Simulated scan of single mutants.
Amino acid sequence: MKTKSVVPSFLSVIILLQLANAQNLSVGYYSKSCPNLESIVEKTTARFVSSAKSLAPALLRMHFHDCFVRGCDGSVLINTRSKNDPAEKDSLPNQSLRGFKVIDAVKSDVEKACRNKVSCADILALVARDAVKLIGGPSWPVPLGRKDGRISRANESLANLPPPFFNVTQLIASFASKNLTAKDLVILSGGHTIGISHCSSFSSRLYNFNGQVNSSDPSMDPKYVAALKKKCPPPGNTTNIVDMDPGSGLDFDTNYYKILAQRRGLFQSDATLLQNSVTNAYIQQHVNAAAESSFFKDFADSMVKMGKIGVLTGPPGEIRKICSKIN
């Protein structure tokens, strides 16, 4: 009986500590130690995104992948130090991440102005915000004060990042474990309004669905299936790519919800959002451009909330000198 009572108490302590750390974040945290931080980050990020808009969704995705594993601690940026202990960066879900050079460049410019003051985790959070803003998406105040983690394990990525084949029940549970709601789920999924995907992430919906020969996912619009098959011919194509939001892949807008309602969600994890009353209701409210301002506000709020997942604000965190290496 004593053992059973200790476990919930221990978990409660962890949750309370995480919430306390999140409360220690603040907008303007570096106002004295690095007063020009945000302008430096935006200028350097713009230098990359202005010439390659496809980096914007990549940087947003990187922030998401960082926060869902060990919290927003920059651990996704760390290079593997031993082949027997691969880092998050080398896990299967993260092998397609792009934009590390942007983070490195921003860190370098920040270090020139404010040596050993700003964490890589904070830089990643700011870069993700600025990248979205630079392609016409919303902006939001980023609470700062995160420290960088010193641990990065590939197997933890597989355990924490929701895969594209999850159903809505699994997705809601995954987000709930990070203190995010079903509404946060469908709002943050709206980030799929920008970006691309490799055919391998959804080809199981096109060919031999659920093991049935020559069958496709019946929840998909047949015309969309036919169009995708032309871009992703069998067998298991791993190099071809498609827009997650056809015709609007670099425009941050509400078109993602419109195509979901038309049964043209690319991933199973997109399509399944129609099967829950909360997520489906949000989709139906945002199927036209008139709802864009509402989506922008909600997305900003959910990004702030996501950016507080499991943050470190003191020991054992650190401020890395180089984002890809622990000190």
Rank of each mutant, 00 (worst) to 15 (best):
residue 5 S to V: 00
residue 6 V to E: 12
residue 10 F to E: 12
residue 11 L to D: 12
residue 11 L to Q: 12
residue 12 S to G: 12
residue 13 V to R: 11
residue 15 I to T: 15
residue 18 Q to D: 11
residue 21 N to Y: 01
residue 22 A to M: 01
residue 26 S to M: 00
residue 26 S to T: 10
residue 26 S to W: 05
residue 27 V to R: 00
residue 28 G to Q: 04
residue 28 G to W: 06
residue 29 Y to I: 10
residue 29 Y to M: 13
residue 31 S to C: 02
residue 33 S to H: 03
residue 34 C to H: 13
residue 34 C to N: 13
residue 36 N to W: 03
residue 37 L to E: 11
residue 41 V to D: 03
residue 41 V to H: 02
residue 42 E to I: 08
residue 43 K to M: 08
residue 45 T to P: 04
residue 45 T to Q: 02
residue 46 A to F: 02
residue 47 R to T: 14
residue 50 S to E: 15
residue 52 A to L: 00
residue 53 K to E: 12
residue 55 L to Q: 11
residue 57 P to N: 05
residue 65 H to D: 14
residue 67 C to E: 04
residue 68 F to T: 03
residue 70 R to H: 08
residue 72 C to M: 05
residue 72 C to L: 04
residue 72 C to N: 04
residue 74 G to V: 09
residue 75 S to W: 02
residue 76 V to F: 05
residue 76 V to R: 01
residue 78 I to S: 00
residue 78 I to M: 04
residue 80 T to A: 04
residue 80 T to G: 07
residue 81 R to V: 11
residue 83 K to N: 14
residue 83 K to D: 15
residue 84 N to T: 12
residue 84 N to C: 07
residue 87 A to F: 03
residue 89 K to I: 03
residue 92 L to Q: 12
residue 95 Q to C: 07
residue 98 R to M: 15
residue 102 V to S: 01
residue 104 D to I: 08
residue 105 A to Q: 08
residue 107 K to P: 04
residue 111 E to D: 15
residue 124 L to W: 06
residue 132 V to P: 00
residue 132 V to L: 12
residue 132 V to A: 05
residue 134 L to T: 02
residue 135 I to C: 03
residue 136 G to M: 09
residue 140 W to I: 04
residue 147 K to W: 12
residue 150 R to E: 09
residue 154 A to K: 04
residue 158 L to W: 04
residue 159 A to S: 14
residue 160 N to M: 10
residue 163 P to Y: 06
residue 166 F to L: 11
residue 167 N to R: 00
residue 178 K to R: 10
residue 180 L to W: 06
residue 182 A to H: 08
residue 193 T to S: 11
residue 194 I to K: 01
residue 197 S to L: 08
residue 198 H to N: 13
residue 200 S to Y: 15
residue 201 S to K: 07
residue 204 S to T: 13
residue 206 L to Q: 05
residue 208 N to V: 00
residue 210 N to M: 14
residue 211 G to S: 14
residue 211 G to I: 13
residue 214 N to I: 06
residue 215 S to K: 11
residue 218 P to S: 09
residue 222 P to M: 09
residue 222 P to D: 15
residue 225 V to A: 07
residue 230 K to I: 13
residue 235 P to K: 11
residue 235 P to I: 12
residue 238 T to W: 09
residue 240 N to T: 06
residue 241 I to E: 15
residue 242 V to W: 10
residue 249 G to Y: 10
residue 250 L to C: 06
residue 250 L to D: 11
residue 257 Y to H: 04
residue 257 Y to T: 05
residue 258 K to M: 05
residue 262 Q to P: 03
residue 266 L to D: 02
residue 268 Q to M: 00
residue 269 S to F: 01
residue 274 L to P: 01
residue 274 L to D: 03
residue 274 L to I: 08
residue 280 N to D: 15
residue 284 Q to D: 10
residue 290 A to N: 11
residue 292 E to R: 13
residue 294 S to A: 15
residue 295 F to W: 13
residue 296 F to M: 06
residue 300 A to R: 07
residue 300 A to V: 06
residue 302 S to K: 07
residue 302 S to W: 05
residue 302 S to C: 11
residue 304 V to Q: 15
residue 306 M to G: 03
residue 306 M to V: 07
residue 306 M to K: 04
residue 309 I to C: 11
residue 309 I to D: 11
residue 317 G to L: 08
residue 318 E to F: 09
residue 319 I to S: 02
residue 320 R to P: 08
residue 322 I to Q: 13
residue 327 N to W: 09
